[in-house]
């Protein structure tokens, strides 16, 4: 069975005046049908740019992205293929048109892609809303009347109404309250199970990732530094950055005081990336060999890939 999503050597560079910002510098990964792969990292790591490129919203400077065998550029241009890849955005209130009703919002993909008229799509919209836990009374409401959680559910209903095979989720719960987050994640999981969808889950919130992702790819400054099954990555992080990231996460540990051991320094700017390994400035294991070469991502154990000169 071939992977549903194949990202090969993705490069995305922006021109910002005279400066060039290398947001993504050669990222490759794949995802199987029904799998959730999480891209985690901090600001400047390129996960959002990667997500938008996978969804076909942004053009890659180099490299190739394929979904179900089709090039993502073709998917973006062809209304008959557009349904294959959909996306849910971080800020639900901004991802819904404030002047539209919920019904019209959720029906938009049907209207544009299938040219379905309003009457015909009504029932499908009601069903789609029910699948995300919203009743028919929401049809005539407008985004400003919705809470954060409700708005995100509407966005999910819209994304899923055309039965996509791949859904890119860009920090879908980051703007939601704690108590709502959990429910939305459960919803996403149950929908995935029902329909065998693949999720690309972008997040900086490790707790959500731990819950929903099968595999995790850790990104730093435009490259993937480590990939592996979720449980293993969290149990035994091999890359120094992954270790630092996990250790920085505040955990609820009422019995033991959480010893905060932060990583030193800050992420360099993507417009001024150091030669060699991008992480050397902050790495506790850094040595002279780290400045010489940018370590490639290679397999170190079953399913585990690591980009580090010091493979231990």
């Amino acid at each position: 069975m071939s992977p549903l999503l194949e990202v090969d050597d993705l490069v995305i560079t922006y021109a910002n005046g005279r400066r060039r910002v290398s947001a993504v510098r050669g990222v490759s990964f794949a995802a199987e049908p029904g799998e959730t792969i999480a891209l985690v990292g901090e600001s400047g790591c390129g996960k959002s740019s990667t997500a938008r490129a996978v969804a076909g919203l942004e053009a890659a400077t180099a490299g190739r992205i394929r979904v179900a065998g089709h090039d993502v550029g073709a998917i973006a241009r062809d209304p008959k293929l557009r349904h294959l890849v959909q996306m849910v955005f971080q800020h639900a209130d901004q991802s819904l048109d404030q002047t539209w009703t919920v019904e019209r919002i959720v029906a938009e993909p049907l209207a544009r892609m299938h040219r379905t008229g309003r009457g015909a799509s009504h029932d499908r919209v009601v069903t789609a809303l029910a699948e995300v836990g919203l009743g028919a009374e929401y049809l005539s409401r407008r985004p400003r009347d919705l809470s954060g959680g409700q708005a995100q559910r509407v966005a999910i209903a819209r994304a899923l109404i055309t039965r996509p095979q791949l859904v890119v989720l860009d920090e879908p719960t980051a703007s939601l309250d704690q108590s709502v987050r959990s429910r939305v994640l459960s919803l996403l999981q149950s929908l995935q199970a029902e329909r065998t969808m693949t999720y690309v889950f972008i997040s900086h919130d490790l707790a959500s990732v731990r819950r929903i992702a099968h595999r995790v790819a850790v990104m730093y400054l435009g490259r993937i530094v480590e990939v592996g099954p979720t449980a293993e990555i969290f149990r035994d992080p091999k890359h120094p950055y992954t270790r630092g990231l996990l250790e920085s996460e505040p955990r609820v540990t009422p019995d033991e005081p959480w010893e905060i051991t932060p990583m030193t320094g800050e992420t360099p700017s993507p417009s001024a990336i150091p030669a060699g390994c991008a992480f050397q400035g902050r790495c506790p294991l850094a040595g002279p060999e780290c400045a010489a070469v940018d370590p490639p991502l290679i397999e170190v154990a079953g399913g585990r890939l690591l980009a580090c000169v010091k493979k231990d």
Binding site: E42, S43, H204, L206, G244, L245, E247, S248, E249, P250, I260, T261, P262, M263, E266, T267
Partner: peptide, 14 residues
């Protein structure tokens, strides 16, 4: 703030 920076700031406050 990024989670690693958050940890730095929290430690600082502490």
């Amino acid at each position: 703030l990024d989670v690693t920076i958050q940890a730095q700031i929290l430690l600082l406050l502490k």
